[in-house]
Amino acid sequence: MKRLLAIELQKIWLNRASRILTLTYFGILSLIALIASIEFDLGPIHFDASEQGIFNFPYIWHLNSYIGASPKIFLALVIVSMMANEYTYGTLKQNLIDGMSKKEFVLSKFLTVLVFSGLSTVFIFVISLLLGLMYSTYDEVGIIFSEMDYLLAFFVKLTGFFSFCLFLGVLIKRSAFAIGFLFVWYLIENIGYLIFGKLIVNDFELARSIFRYMPLEAMSGVLIEPFTKLDMIQAVGNQVGVLEIKDYAVDYGLVAVVLVWTGLFVWGSYALIQKRDL
């Protein structure tokens, strides 16, 4: 396993574009810490992010997992191109001839996906822990380490997304087209939902209950946005009466769905490589 990972990391690290994208990604992740310095005056109201309770445990686990998932497109680019390049360079063929099995080949890619997701999770964990320890009003160990399943959801979400990218790289074999297709797929899920809900069943409730299991929807569903959970916004919302009661907990049903998608994408990549003649 170490061998497979070493092979893949060499391919990525020695490629300048991939190296820069990877470093940029982790750079942006650590910028989350800068939210603490957001401070502005809105008329008579003085807003200081670090004093709004957003760094309170356990809320911070949720907030940072949610925000930390947004720069994932940087690593998605790395993963799509590391796969598609193997086709454009003809190196998939060469790797197989040199004695890698097709299974090992896919495994080396998937292990890298796991390492990227795992590293991101560790990153978010460390940053959140530090920010929390500095600004949180609660510092009991029991509270600090509660509701940490948002980190698990974060890990599953990234793994699912990167596996999807990996699969698209295998399927389409060209980086640019694969990234384009990722965007098209996002539209398909949304337009499909509208068409299905409006024209076919004329029931958005039903359409919603089906389309929330589509890969990208399911990935976004495992982490609900944390902003309306803040006391301040809740208070405002209650007064105005616009806020519905939401369940902010990690949806384990969707976590399972994303894991199933992940399995399908990895298996699909393997099946394609197995079936194709090079």
Partner: peptide, 15 residues
């Protein structure tokens, strides 16, 4: 077995 084989197929494929 291919680890004990050396092969060059048409175009040289490297990174």
């Amino acid at each position: 077995a291919l680890k004990k084989v050396g092969a060059i197929i048409e175009r040289p494929n490297f990174y």
